[in-house]
């Protein structure tokens, strides 16, 4: 079983230095406190928690963007520090919540999608990279892709923009996609369209997906396994069904109870 571990996080602690005014308990804030978690290849994992719980910090630690105070992150059995940067940054892609901020308003779709290809020198410049970019748009559900190629972000709807972001990530043929609140800025009817794109990519390309989210229903819809973070602690983890049907930790129970719309789900 150990050989299909994608990420192994062991006793990871991340501290942020605090400014004097906020410092009450100490000079550091523990954003993550001895978190251990395993994410297997091909598995869809959801990191669930409220803002400030440390879920985005954990995502950044996985990407090697944060220097941990202690503990370790291993990627495919290798210490993250010693992993080859260039190939890691191609294999592991991330998309963020707000497609309005992820895209450069002054660049057409073509440039946003092929930026990664240029950086990683994938394919030959010119027609070959255009072909890869168009195929990525198509895979992200923007069809026909040619009609999107020369457009600018302001000419796209929110859902289309997020799909351009996904296409930019997928153009590099990654094996891992980290999604930090990928649909929370989108309208509900569009949200499901984007999730279907991600589910399709997972099915067709065996992507390992990580969802960082405060939205329990997103975890329910997409994840195989759920890990619940609270104030930097991993309070509970397990198969999605088990965690959502039979939560053990008080915080998880509170989180599930706070989801609005009880009247919606239980028709009187």
């Amino acid at each position: 079983m150990t050989d299909d571990a994608l990420f192994e996080i062991d006793e990871l602690t991340v501290r942020y230095r605090m400014r004097r005014r906020q410092a009450r308990a100490g000079r550091y804030l523990k954003a993550l406190d001895r978190v251990s978690l395993r994410w297997n290849q091909g598995e869809t994992l959801a990191l669930v928690g409220e803002s400030g719980s440390g879920k985005s910090t954990l995502g950044r630690a996985l990407l090697g963007l944060i220097q941990p105070a202690s503990g370790s992150v291993r990627y495919r059995g290798q210490e993250l520090r010693s992993v080859d940067r260039t190939s890691f940054r191609r294999e592991v892609q991330i998309i963020f919540q707000d497609p309005y901020q992820s895209l450069n308003p002054r660049s057409p779709v073509s440039r946003q999608v092929s930026a990664g290809l240029d950086i990683h020198r994938v394919g030959r410049p010119g027609p070959q990279r255009v072909a890869i970019g168009l195929a990525a748009l198509d895979a992200a559900g923007l069809r026909p892709p040619e009609t999107y190629w020369h457009r600018y972000p302001h000419q796209l709807s929110g859902g289309e923009r997020q799909r351009v972001v996904i296409a930019g990530a997928m153009a590099l043929a990654p094996s891992v996609l980290i999604c930090d609140e990928p649909v929370s800025a989108l309208d509900i009817s569009v949200r499901a369209q984007v999730l279907q794109v991600l589910a399709g990519l997972r099915r067709d390309r065996g992507l390992s997906l990580l969802f960082i989210t405060h939205d329990v229903s997103l975890a329910r819809q997409m994840a195989d396994r759920v890990a619940v973070l609270y104030q930097g602690h991993l309070v509970e983890q397990g198969p999605t069904e088990q965690i959502l049907q039979d939560p053990q930790h008080d915080y998880t129970k509170e989180l599930l109870a706070a989801v609005p719309g009880a009247r919606l789900r239980s028709t009187p």
Partner: peptide, 24 residues
């Protein structure tokens, strides 16, 4: 009706709601 389906979505884990095609 479709919006309500999307919000009240099926509780079974792993079920994706059916999106409304297109956009407003």
């Amino acid at each position: 009706a479709r919006l309500l389906d999307l919000f009240g979505a099926d509780d079974t884990p792993g079920t994706l709601p059916t999106p409304i095609p297109g956009a407003q």
